[in-house]
Every structure is written in C-alpha cells, then in structure tokens.
Simulated assay, not measured.
Amino acid sequence: MSDFDFSENEVQRYARHIVLKEVGGTGQMKLKRGRVLIVGAGGLGSPLAMYLAAAGVGTIGIVDADTVELSNLQRQIAHGMKDIGTPKVDSAKATMADMNPEVTVQAHNTRLDASNVLDLIADYDVIADGSDNFDTRFLLNDACYHAGKTLVSGAALRFDGQVSTFKAHLGAPHPCYRCIYHAPPPEDAIPSCAQGGVLGSVVGMVGGIQATEVLKELMGIGDGLSGQLLIIDALSASFRKIRVPRDPGCPTCSENATIKDLSIHEH
C-alpha cells in the first residue's frame, strides 16, 4: 500500500475499508485527503464526528458554541459525564482523537452566523449540517450554494428523521434546501427537541446515514441523495425516498434568484 502513502498502522486500521472493491486504497486515500466541516456537536454531530474520524477523514472541523449539559448525554454520544461544563467542540475533539489519532480535528468554538459562515466553510470539501434550528440550516444552504460546496443535511425530531444532499452549485437538476422549503417556518410552528423530545437512537440513525453520505461524496462512489429526501419513521421501522426537483422559482438557486448574498440572514 506504499503507493498510497499509508503507514502500517493505517493499513491495519482501515483494512475493512480497503478490502471493499468500491473503496480500496484509492478511496481510502481520498478520505485521508478529505476535509469535512461538521456544524453542531450535538445529537447529529456526535455520530457524524465519530464515524468520520474512525473512517479516516484526514481533516475534520467541528463548529459549536455550546457547553455539555447533563440533558445532552441521552443522545450526544461524543460526550460523557466528565465533559459536563466543557465546550462541546473540545469534548468531541478529545473523543475523536482517542478513536483515531491519525486525523486532524479543528475545533471552532463559535456560533455560526452570516458574518463568519463563508470563512468557516472555505477550507472544507463537504459541509455536514448537524444543527438544530432552521435559521442555521437556511444560512448554510445559501452559503454552500454561493461558495460551491456540497452540503449533507440531516434533521431529527421525536421518532422521525430526514437526510438529503444538496449540490445546487453544480446546476440542474440538483436542488438546494430552499427548493423544498423557501423560508424558515414561524418560530412556534415546529417544536425543538427540547420541546417535542427525540429518541436518542434516532439521531444516531440520522447522523450515521449523514456520515455514510459524506464518505460517499468524498470518494465519489454509489448513488448520493442529491434530488432525493430520505424520510425515516423509526416507530414503523420504515424508510422512504421522495424525489425533490430543482425549483425554477427558488430564491437561492434559480435564474431569477432573489438571494444574491448572505445579507438576508443578518439581523
């Protein structure tokens, strides 16, 4: 495996990847050279961070401004009792480093907003949205579109989850997040996880699927979720995919887009 610049430890660590014909040494090297930014170190960001680190993604950034609380531990598996009161990005970084010291983890202990989003995503190949609010999801969508970045988005509430990949910057037929939802819903329309609850294992399912889609995007294998919305109903153990066409009237990615920059998100 010397042609791929792997150490002996890496060959052993990633052996179950390398024997996959769809991955092999070439795919594993793409992961090693890959750069992924995870937004949110919570329920979705935890399995995302851990699986991407375990898989050998070379550089992983993680953005979050919160500290670990006891109520997080029911689902945010990157953190433990010893981490209560510490920044989530530091706790997640320590967990990832313990799992795989071969990867570089960049902790961004800040709240992502319109003033810093373009700088934060600039150095990464794929952006994984593990945020828990619509404002951040729409901001990330618009920023990724304008910056030409692939966005893998996930959401979970109660027993339900959704995952999709957005590559509208590549042009038709790829849609963006606003092709599905033109604008954030009213604040009280959809409860937060704190209000509505969420089964801890459901965010693990969603985050794990997001991690798989990120790895596929980095390696260029399989069929991605661009143009499709994967809907998960854990209570009925059902999965279904809905086709999502590009919206010719989308305010972000259509020819007549009204969102030309990120000023719409500044308050």
Rank of each mutant, 00 (worst) to 15 (best):
N72C: 12
G200H: 02
I264K: 14
R178L: 10
T67G: 09
L170I: 00
P245R: 12
P87V: 10
E8I: 13
G154I: 11
T252E: 14
C144T: 15
H79R: 00
S254F: 11
I77T: 07
I190G: 02
T86H: 14
T86R: 15
D119H: 12
G85E: 14
G222K: 05
R178C: 04
I121H: 00
R35E: 06
K149Q: 05
R13N: 08
G207C: 06
H169V: 07
K149H: 08
T95N: 01
L218M: 01
L37V: 05
V163S: 07
C179Y: 05
A168L: 08
A114I: 12
A41M: 10
G222Y: 00
A194M: 09
L215I: 13
A92C: 09
T95C: 10
L230K: 10
D129L: 07
L140H: 09
G224V: 03
D132G: 13
V23K: 01
G154M: 04
G42S: 08
I242T: 14
R111L: 14
I18A: 09
L157Y: 06
F138S: 09
H169A: 03
V11Q: 14
A257Y: 02
G85Q: 09
Q12W: 12
N116R: 13
A92G: 09
G40T: 02
N9W: 14
L112F: 02
M96Y: 01
G61A: 11
Y14L: 00
V203T: 15
T258S: 15
